[in-house]
Design a protein around this nucleic acid. Structure first.
Length: 470
RNA sequence: CGGGGAGUGGCGCAGUAGGUAGCGCGCCUGCUUUGGGGGCAGGAGGCCGGGGGUUCGAGUCCCCCCUCCCCGACCA
């Protein structure tokens, strides 16, 4: 029966349905009352807060400072950069009324903030001494979407968007790549434990208004790709549109070179689809709102006291611990609920264990159980958390490798992309090839060197990673 | 926007010769149980998406409208 695995549809049976059931069953999010909107519940938001903390620290390490720009943007701003407006006009929400009356000038709800940020950059940047200007904001953005899916695509979503201005194109390129690597790639690999392809986007996939887009791409559990973070070089496009000029040492005026980059709550969708299994979510310890749940099997004074003591010990060691003493609910029900939420380690404490000064440690990643002496509990939990982190990455990497095929021709790529990614010489694709692939629902996810590393600007002889995507 | 489907307790659904609205899960109370979705007993909760029509009588038949979901085109 399909419902054997903790009440969820199996991934193999119906992956999209499994995804929705995990999002709902783990109490992460649900649809808002307005089409395409999302309510992020405490468990989902707790994951986001941890992820946000990791990204924020790395962004600050890269020198950017946080700021905040308004939600409402004058409609006229959007039109100032030609490609940008063409790219975003179809997805904007426009406010036409306020205070019960039509607005004299309609206001756009930000789909992204390049325009309003650069309006201010023009004021703030006068001299080469004002550069580089490195600003990040955490915010919501709103876009019209045809079809929405919780976390993966919603009309309103949370993200961070960075905006920078530099004196030279080289500096801008370096910074865009630095963010991609040090903030995004590092967070996705070492915190989220998702194996990641990095590379350059083709012109077709480039951000509206950018000259180059760099991206992190992950493979989901169904073989499809998900873009996990992008970093754009805007060249001088917005600088010209918003007249952002600086005076160099000699007093000559030049337009700045810019970048913008973003990562969103979509990352949570990726987390689910990469690590989840038929029993629900599996969280990497770094992103688990509770890393350990101490389950009281049966309530009495012994188990209550013991579970509190264990929780204290683990907390003192810096772990996020939660006690589940809701013994009015059955044991099985509670075990399944925590499993679905993806808590990495469960400790079960009942009279049987306490009689021997032991506890049962359950690892979520393989659902293995082990009876452990109380004195070595902390060490066992730590080791289980480390194993979790290592295994999640290893399993995801093995899956991606098993579903990535090196091919030589477009025809072979189409065939291989039915199962996952195909990697082929970029020269075999080209713009015409991209059109062909698009006919099969396949896109070029990124261009990279043959060894998988990031290419340089205008570098030839690249490989194209292609596949179906979310 | 094109093609398909659905609106009935919180969730998932059943409900056609039109005749007083049901089931599972969840929820509340009590007892019992608790080592992988417990058991028994009692209980609460519905303008059947909206409006009009046919009829003695409409969840069910007719007309109009609204919303949502799935597949495709757009996208972090």
């Amino acid at each position: 029966m399909a419902k054997d695995a903790g009440g969820l549809t199996s991934r193999a049976e119906d992956f999209p349905r499994w995804y929705q059931e995990v999002v709902a069953g783990a109490e992460m999010a649900e649809n808002g009352p307005v089409r395409g909107t999302m309510v992020i519940r405490p468990w989902g938001f707790g994951i986001w807060e941890l992820l946000q903390g990791e990204l924020d620290r790395r962004i600050k390490d890269a020198g950017a400072e946080n700021a905040y720009f308004p939600l409402f943007i004058p409609e006229a701003f959007l039109g100032l950069e030609k490609e940008h407006v063409e790219g975003f006009s179809p997805e904007t929400w426009v406010v036409t009324h306020g205070g019960g009356k039509p607005l004299e000038e309609p206001v756009v709800v930000r789909p992204t903030s390049e325009t309003v940020v650069n309006h201010f950059f023009a004021k703030w940047i006068q001299s080469h001494r004002d550069l580089p200007l490195l600003v990040n904001q955490w915010s919501n953005v709103v876009r019209w979407e045809m079809r929405t899916r919780l976390f993966l695509r919603t009309s309103e979503f949370l993200w961070q968007e960075g905006h920078t201005a530099h004196a030279t194109e080289q500096e801008a390129t370096d910074y865009a790549v630095r963010i991609l690597r040090d903030a995004y790639l590092d967070t996705i690999e070492s915190v989220m434990r998702i194996p990641t392809f990095v590379g350059l986007k083709t012109d077709r996939e480039r951000f509206a208004g950018a000259i180059r887009t760099w991206a992190c791409e992950g493979m989901m559990g169904d073989g499809k790709a998900l873009q996990l973070g992008t970093s754009h070089e805007l060249g001088q496009n917005f600088a010209r549109a918003f007249d952002i000029q600086y005076a160099d040492e000699s007093g000559a005026r030049s337009y700045v070179h810019q970048t913008s980059w973003g990562a969103s709550t979509r990352l949570i969708g990726g987390l689910i689809m990469v690590h989840g299994d038929d029993f629900g979510l599996r969280l990497p310890p770094a992103l688990a709102p509770s890393q350990v749940v101490v389950m009281v099997v049966r309530a009495d004074e012994h188990t209550d006291r013991a579970s509190a003591a264990i929780a204290d010990e683990l907390r003192s060691a810096g772990l996020r611990v939660r006690i589940d003493d809701q013994t009015a609910a059955s044991f099985g029900r509670r075990a399944i609920d925590w499993e679905r939420k993806g808590v990495p380690v469960r400790i079960e404490i009942g009279p049987r264990d306490l009689a021997e000064d032991r506890a049962v440690v359950v690892r979520r990643f393989d659902r293995s159980k082990q009876s452990v002496g109380l004195s070595s509990l902390l060490a066992e939990v730590r080791s289980a958390l480390e194993r979790t982190s290592a295994v999640l990455h290893a399993e995801a990497l093995a899956f991606r490798e098993a579903h990535t095929t090196s091919v030589e021709t477009l025809e072979e790529a189409v065939e291989a992309a039915a199962e996952g990614f195909a990697v082929l010489p970029a020269s075999e694709v080209g713009e015409a090839g991209e059109d062909t692939l698009a006919g099969y629902g396949i896109t070029v996810r990124c261009l990279q060197r043959a060894d998988g590393s990031l290419p340089g600007v205008d570098e030839g002889d690249l490989s194209a990673v292609v596949g179906k995507s979310y």
